[in-house]
């Protein structure tokens, strides 16, 4: 369980370095870098915070990951969770922050 940061997409806003509850991300030459990938809790705070969809979340192979990644974009109160599957397909799940969980 960890994240990958796309250097080309990163806009250097530093928001991910601020929100990471483990302070695991740092800036190197104006770009965010995941300094301690094995220490990631998988909370996805940085993934939600990134304004450029530059941070992708994935499951480690040791916990059954198949190589898919997940990014998030936001419009208003809606979070668009995009799962980029290993086979090239993309599945989007929208979650409205104004709606409570049914469970």
């Amino acid at each position: 369980m960890s994240i990958k940061i796309d250097r080309d997409r990163c806009v250097g806003c530093q928001r991910c370095t601020v929100v990471c509850p483990g302070s695991l991300i740092e800036m190197q030459a104006g770009k965010a870098v995941m300094k301690y990938p094995r220490d990631c809790w998988g909370c996805a705070s940085c993934v939600k915070e990134c304004p450029a969809e530059a941070i992708a979340f994935f499951l480690g192979a040791d916990i059954g990951g198949s190589g898919s990644t997940m990014t998030v974009s936001e419009s208003g109160d809606v979070l668009h969770w995009k799962i980029h599957c290993w086979d090239g397909t993309v599945k989007v799940i929208d979650v409205d922050r104004k709606n409570a969980n049914q469970y």
């Binding site: 979340f57 990951g65 969770w81 599945k91 799940i93 979650v95 049914q102």
Partner: peptide, 21 residues
């Protein structure tokens, strides 16, 4: 569908696991 959404709000890894597998 509701379970997939509920997990995104607290443990997104579970939703990713369900979908990718």
């Amino acid at each position: 569908r509701d379970l997939l959404k509920a997990y995104l709000n607290m443990a997104p890894s579970q939703t990713l696991k369900w979908v990718e597998s």
